[in-house]
């Protein structure tokens, strides 16, 4: 379970989550999920300046969330899916840690409650059979 994302260090993840901890940058990432775009196109939905958008793009680029390429006069930004996958994997890893543990806890609690003197009509005989 802890063996997911071998390619990412926690410093990388700090950068990644830091970059995503901003509503404007998350919007940019969502826009880029639809396809690559220029700075001007990315700035269109926002009431902030082009230089401000450029600064956001630098943060995203530094976190390896996007890559940028020069084509003639235009710089295109596109989403780098592996980094976003790492952030999602971090969350998925913990979700799985908890849910797998919860499944075991379920069984453990069932054993404990079946050991108590109160009669529990359902599934007791099965639980005891599995236990011994």
């Amino acid at each position: 379970m802890l063996s997911l994302m071998p390619e990412r260090t926690s410093a990388d993840l700090d950068l990644l989550f830091g970059a995503l901890a901003d509503a404007t940058r998350r919007s940019i990432v969502e826009r880029l999920a639809e396809g690559e775009a220029t700075v001007t196109e990315l700035a269109a939905p926002f009431s902030i300046s082009l230089p401000a958008i450029s600064r956001h793009l630098k943060v995203l680029e530094h976190a390896s969330l996007i890559t940028r390429s020069q084509e003639g006069r235009w710089r295109h930004a596109r989403l780098s899916p592996t980094s976003l996958g790492s952030a999602a994997a971090w969350l998925a890893r913990y979700e799985r840690l908890w849910t797998e543990s919860f499944d075991r806890l379920d069984d453990h609690l069932a054993r404990l409650t079946s050991e108590q003197p109160q009669p529990r009509p359902k599934a007791d005989s099965q639980d005891q059979a599995r236990e011994r």
């Binding site: 989550f17 969350l91 913990y94 979700e95 908890w98 849910t99 919860f102 806890l105 379920d106 453990h108 609690l109 069932a110 404990l112 409650t113």
Partner: peptide, 18 residues
């Protein structure tokens, strides 16, 4: 970043002890 809820068929004091 992560929020999970789960219902266990056991009393609260027992789940806490677990």
């Amino acid at each position: 970043q992560l929020a999970l809820t789960r219902i266990f068929d056991a009393p609260r004091t027992l789940v806490y002890r677990a």
